[in-house]
């Protein structure tokens, strides 16, 4: 059971943290891109045009039905093959996470706006607010209150999903972990236990506070 020292030897801990940073960086970039594109998708879904609506719905459902790992493979192997452009693993990861994230954000934005009762629009207008004023003072703040906890929740899902990119060769935290295990195979045969326990804990330490925050905000919204 011993072998926990492996975590504190040399710069092993630093390397794991470096790997974790790769994971987080990919997640953060993808979350940011998803938010920008997702708000746009959500706005499109609120448009009255049925064709636009259906196209958005189809996009969301197609993304949703496949496992994210399948999408990752399609982008990493398929696009490379088809276009002869060599995507790095990291780029493929960001593309996959963004396509997926944007669809989820789009759906969240849509439902956040649709959950605002219509009398809010009517009473805002009857007070004499202009449309921009109505949206700025009445609608956006309410939609945002519903949206923020869901977006935080989605962020934890994005961070967890980023773990998949080790499977297309990106040197993130899992890959670094594997390298450390391989390098210490003879000196610390039990390294795998501690390294993976550590990575497990790292994810938990990042995602748990976010989950708590999201839950707290959701509760607040309910009051």
């Amino acid at each position: 059971m011993q072998g926990i020292e492996v975590l504190f030897m040399g710069n092993n801990m630093l390397r794991l943290l470096d790997g974790l940073w790769v994971t987080l960086r990919l997640s953060l970039i993808s979350i940011a891109l998803s938010l920008v594109i997702g708000v746009f998708v959500g706005a499109l879904m609120l448009v009255k045009n049925p064709v636009v609506k259906v196209m958005c719905r189809v996009y969301i459902e197609i993304v949703r039905i496949m496992p994210q790992l399948v999408w990752l493979f399609i982008i990493f192997f398929g696009i490379t093959k088809m276009t002869k452009i060599n995507l790095s693993g990291e780029t493929a990861a960001v593309i996959m996470l963004t396509i997926w994230g944007a669809s989820e954000v789009g759906d969240l934005v849509r439902s956040a706006f649709q959950s605002i009762p219509s009398h809010q629009f009517e009473s805002g207008l009857s007070l004499g607010l202009s449309r921009p004023q109505l949206y700025f003072y009445v609608i956006f703040p309410q939609a945002l209150r519903g949206l923020v906890p869901d977006i935080i929740n989605l962020s934890t899902r994005m961070i967890k999903t980023t773990a998949l990119v080790s499977l297309i060769g990106v040197t993130e935290v899992l890959k670094v972990g594997k390298q450390i295990i391989d390098a210490n195979r003879f000196e610390f045969p039990n390294a795998a236990l501690w390294v993976y326990a550590e990575i497990f804990l790292m994810y938990f330490i990042i995602c748990f506070p976010l989950s708590l925050l999201s839950r707290k905000l959701t509760k607040k919204r309910g009051e």
Binding site: K160, A163, S166, L174, A192, L193, Y196, F200, Y203
Partner: peptide
Amino acid sequence: RNTPLIVQLFFLYFGL
């Protein structure tokens, strides 16, 4: 809920 399945699997398969 706050850890990815792949990490859980690695722990089970390689760690345990």
